[in-house]
Simulated assay, not measured.
Amino acid sequence: MTWIVVPVLALALLAILTYLFLPRLLNVLGIHRHYTIPDFDLNGRRALVICTNHDRLDPSNKKTGAFGSEFTVPYYAFVNAGLAVDIASPKGGSIPIQPGSWSWPLASEDDKRFMADKKAMHDLQNSKAVGDLVPKDYDVIFMAGGWGAAYDLMQSEELADFITRANAENKILGSVCHGALGLCGATGLDGEPLVKGRRVTGVTNNQINTFGIAITPKHPEEELRKLGAIFECQHAFRDPFATHTTIDGNLITGQNQNSGYETAHRILEKMATQRNV
């Protein structure tokens, strides 16, 4: 029976090693690469994190939603800095989660913390409707990505109006990945597209093609370029392992799911230089 036992034990050992070390290998390659956000004391400030309501990839009908770390990482960066954080969406109510983003091997430590946080989970399932909010109540408005965002962030008139008004009040506007689509419907003080002539980033066409989701209706790189934005990004042997953060005045944007840490850091850094009003 030894000739049976040895291969079985070898396979079991391989499975254990894969389970233990694959997440770390992905970190080394660039997925949620370790990044330390310094301490900030911003008690009394407020942040709004906006996610998608869309839960299906049309026309395949596969489940989609918001990508876990793209909202959990900034959420806890803001919480750790003393901010009160609200969660919103174009329609309000339940925010779906992109399958796989909250499970092995992709789930980040902030994802796990969020899933165990009763208040955070309640707010995720009972998000505020953007149309019911006013920008003056927040110091920063941050838009998370996930493939579902391709279906409703740019298409939402309520979100476009909210971001337009927030920009007029010089609020910090942040995003990662597909979240940049939330900037695309807004206008600046001159009546031109908000992103026109501005340095911004978001998920690349290359990454979208790598994941085979070109069926989605809006692609951040394409839409931002169409509106006259100066689109910046980094490439890797596969773009899902790249990261980049861009700062242009009150716009602070991150390229993809790996960019939440630095993007949140730069937002907090800018907030620390502003007077609390």
Rank of each mutant, 00 (worst) to 15 (best):
E192K: 10
D123M: 07
L22F: 05
P99Y: 11
Q255H: 03
I213T: 13
K112V: 15
K136A: 14
I31Q: 15
K218I: 00
Q274F: 11
M143H: 03
L26D: 07
G191A: 15
L251Q: 06
F162I: 04
K118D: 04
C51F: 05
L26P: 04
D58L: 08
L20I: 06
Q274G: 14
R46K: 15
S60M: 01
L224E: 13
G145P: 06
R24F: 07
L183T: 10
R238E: 11
S175E: 10
Y138E: 15
I87W: 00
H34E: 10
P74E: 06
D86K: 07
D137T: 13
T245N: 00
H54L: 08
V200F: 10
Y76M: 01
L173P: 10
T216I: 09
P217Y: 11
D58T: 02
K119W: 06
V8F: 09
A12Q: 07
I247Q: 03
V79T: 12
D137E: 15
A120P: 02
V134A: 04
L183W: 08
D152A: 13
L29Y: 10
L20E: 01
T72V: 02
Y76F: 12
T253V: 01
N27Y: 04
I230A: 09
R198V: 01
D86G: 02
E70C: 07
G254K: 04
G146H: 13
V28D: 07
D55A: 10
L189I: 05
T36F: 09
T2F: 13
H235F: 09
G228H: 09
I97Q: 11
V130W: 01
R199A: 06
L194H: 05
L20M: 03
I215Q: 06
F241L: 07
R24A: 02
V134Y: 03
Q234T: 08
P90A: 05
T210E: 08
L133R: 11
A107M: 13
L183K: 12
A160E: 03
L251C: 15
A166Q: 08
H122D: 07
A229Q: 11
L25A: 04
V195I: 12
E169Y: 08
I4K: 01
Y151F: 11
A47C: 12
Y151M: 15
A10K: 08
I141C: 15
R165Q: 06
A88K: 01
S108M: 08
C177K: 04
G188Y: 00
L173E: 14
H235A: 15
G93D: 00
H54Y: 04
G93Q: 00
S108F: 13
N43P: 10
R165Y: 09
E222N: 09
A88R: 03
S60D: 02
I97T: 08
F162E: 03
E262P: 09
I95C: 07
A77E: 11
E157L: 05
D86L: 08
I16L: 05
H219I: 02
Y261R: 15
A264F: 14
V6Q: 12
T204P: 10
W102M: 01
D190S: 11
A77W: 14
N256M: 14
P105E: 13
N209W: 10
T2D: 02
D39P: 12
L189C: 03
V49K: 07
T187Y: 01
I213A: 03
S94W: 08
R56F: 03
M154P: 02
R45L: 14
F78M: 12
V195P: 10
E157C: 01
S89L: 02
R275E: 13
